[in-house]
């Protein structure tokens, strides 16, 4: 029963991500432009906001090239497998303080588990392209993804301890303002680990624009590439929404409809920070990446967990 309802909401999530990607691309171009001291798209629509609507026909009319030695079925299947987990993960986020599209009793675990399917999708898309650069990009990307799942999952646990439940609705409803300074380290760890999980920002080694020529999705053109991009923006939106509702307390000072608006504002602020980080920091090296994950982020998350566990007695 829950299975079918979840599938229905997942389909709606696809729509939300598609719309979000349109605005996300525009916002990214504006943010990156301002950081680089230029103006970005200005001509189509107010302040260039309808630029993506001009881009979509361009992508649709591109020639759909499939490399001769690629595995055709896997090649066509890979973008969908990359996109699906993100739309599915969105259904457990509590959008207002009493409602989530799918109220699962293990919602937080679901949110952490479903994007782990991304690593398979990445490997399949790298394999399907049948060239060395894609394979290298795919292996690096998958290693990065599975490593950063550990601090990402550990950093959400202090919140679960404080709320006493794995339900996102419970966390949203029991949130107190002093949870934020208490779990600040966990929030930072979650933020950095999510950046690495979506191959974004300084962790975009698998899609190395300067070295690997877009790595694991090098051979995808037109609409297939657009699906990869939508997956990336969807991951940003989903991670920011989750962090806004759980770490930052949703629509905290306000409630009801105004609270939902405030939560969306917080999520947009987090998305802006993600874009800001990408366009400001240099790329992380592969060896730095792994040592950063295992020697810095994971111990920090564990220490935060211990601190919250000790403080819990006095609450």
């Amino acid at each position: 029963m829950t299975l079918l309802l979840g599938m229905g909401w997942g389909a709606l999530g696809v729509l939300v991500i598609a719309v979000g990607a349109i605005f996300g691309v525009w916002w990214e171009r504006k943010v990156s432009a301002r950081i680089q001291m230029r103006l970005g798209p200005q001509q189509i629509g107010p302040a260039g906001s309808l630029q993506m609507i001009a881009d979509v026909p361009k992508l649709l009319f591109r020639e759909d090239i499939i490399p001769a030695r690629a595995d055709r079925t896997l090649f066509k299947l890979a973008p969908l497998i990359v996109f699906a987990p993100i739309a599915i993960a969105m259904v457990v986020i509590p959008f207002t303080s009493g409602w989530a599209p799918m109220d699962m009793s293990v919602g937080v675990l679901f949110f952490l588990a479903v994007p782990s399917i991304e690593s398979i999708a990445l490997l399949i898309s790298a394999w399907a392209s049948h060239n060395t650069l894609s394979t290298l990009g795919g292996l690096r990307g998958a290693a990065q993804l599975i490593s950063y799942e550990v601090p990402r999952s550990l950093s959400v646990l202090p919140l679960v301890l404080l709320a006493g439940s794995l339900r996102p609705l419970d966390i949203a409803q029991r949130w107190e303002w002093w949870w934020f300074p208490l779990t600040l380290v966990a929030f930072v760890v979650f933020f950095i680990a999510s950046l690495a999980e979506m191959n974004r920002g300084p962790f975009d080694m698998p899609e190395d624009e300067s070295e690997l020529v877009a790595g694991y999705f090098a051979d995808y053109s037109g609409m297939r590439w657009a699906i990869f991009m939508m997956a990336e923006y969807g991951a940003m939106i989903v991670a920011s929404l989750f962090a806004a509702t759980t770490f930052l307390g949703g629509g905290w000072p306000l409630s009801g409809a105004a609270g939902t608006v405030l939560m969306v504002v917080k999520a947009v602020a987090l998305v802006t920070v993600i874009m800001w980080v990408k366009w400001t920091l240099p790329r992380v090296r592969p060896d730095q990446l792994m040592s950063f994950c295992w020697k810095i982020l994971t111990p920090l998350a564990l220490i935060q967990l211990v601190v919250v566990g000790v403080v819990l007695i006095w609450l």
Partner: peptide, 29 residues
């Protein structure tokens, strides 16, 4: 999930699809 064990279902996805299957795909590659 059908038998009413959502924790076990999500653990299955997390451990098997996100872990063991990734290992096996690495080995295949």
């Amino acid at each position: 999930l059908y038998f009413g064990l959502p924790f076990l279902a999500t653990a299955q996805v997390f451990v098997y699809v996100g872990g063991v299957l990734v290992l096996m795909v690495f080995a295949v590659m």
